[in-house]
Computed example of a mutant assay.
Amino acid sequence: MSGGVLSGEALSENVTFTNAGVVLAGSLSLPEGGAPVPGVVMVGGSGPSDRDNDTHFPPIRRHLVDAGIAVLSYDKRGVGGSSGDWLDATIDDLASDAAAALDFLRARPEVRGEAAGLFGHSEGGWVVLRATALRDDVPWVVTNGGPGTTPAVQDRYDLANALRRTEGITDDEVDAALAGYDRVVEAGRRDADFAEAARIAQSPPTAFSEHAAEVDERLWRFLKRKQDHDPIPDALLLRCPHLVIFGAADHVVPVADSVHLFTTAACDPRRDPRATLTVEVFPGADHRVQTDGGTRLAPGYLGALTRWITARTDEQAA
């Protein structure tokens, strides 16, 4: 289904599509002109991400549309106009939503279905890799700040960096906090309930305890479900080109480890030869590949992204 034109984007529509009983609401932005064009589904990051991934996606969307690429992005389950609840979802559920979005985009007459791929930011990287691994008709996939590690490893890295940026904290206090985090992760692997996890997080109290206090019971169930999701088996199953993008100053994701893991997977003899890997790391850029305190996308980012997608879609047309 589709509805009125969105203000500020003359060729953008509010759309809805369904997946497993969930109604997902989003925006479809189309280039001007009548010929069918390539397309991309943009999948947001963790938490209650909407179709714009707050302010992150609009400048990327505008650039892609100006380059002749249709863009579909959507509100995560339970966010904005979408039904359901992301806290009840698994990575597989979210990947199924991304696949449904891709099918919806491909069904549009304005879009060259065979040239429509997936873009996932942060958690969305895990999601689009899973969606791509489960089907053989995705022509290309982009992970943007998407970890090559599990969520548990990535969250530990994020926590360590956040603590080390805290004024007045000592190395011993950081180590104690990380040990507390590790105990909670192990509790999740035992399927501990929320009360047990909360006790572990506070015993003994550490700098991690304050972070853990922000987690409620429903979020705990969600986090322990996904904490050991490993994207590398999905990377090994890819049958299409993969673009990996990072900011070199990303404090949220372990970039060097992620690049190593994705590169190792790409060199594995079991991987399909069509699954080429391109890695772009932008100096000084953060988790969203932004610079200047998050006020603008890194120089060269939009051009590199668009050139790579265009090259893949040209290959599809050849």
Rank of each mutant, 00 (worst) to 15 (best):
5 V>H: 12
10 A>V: 15
21 G>M: 10
23 V>C: 09
25 A>N: 07
25 A>E: 11
40 V>D: 02
42 M>R: 10
49 S>E: 13
56 H>A: 12
57 F>A: 04
57 F>R: 02
67 A>I: 08
82 S>T: 04
84 G>K: 10
91 I>G: 00
95 A>W: 01
97 D>Q: 09
99 A>S: 15
105 L>V: 03
109 P>G: 01
115 A>S: 14
116 A>N: 03
126 W>V: 00
128 V>N: 02
133 A>W: 07
139 P>G: 13
140 W>E: 04
150 T>M: 12
161 N>T: 02
168 G>M: 06
169 I>F: 06
169 I>E: 08
176 A>V: 09
185 V>Y: 09
185 V>D: 01
190 R>Y: 08
191 D>I: 00
193 D>N: 14
201 A>P: 00
208 F>Q: 08
210 E>H: 07
216 D>Y: 00
229 H>L: 04
231 P>E: 00
242 H>I: 00
246 F>V: 07
253 V>M: 09
255 V>M: 08
258 S>Q: 03
268 D>G: 05
273 P>T: 13
274 R>M: 02
284 G>V: 06
290 Q>I: 06
294 G>I: 08
294 G>Q: 07
300 G>P: 09
301 Y>R: 04
309 I>Y: 04
309 I>E: 08
310 T>F: 04
312 R>H: 11
313 T>L: 07
317 A>F: 00
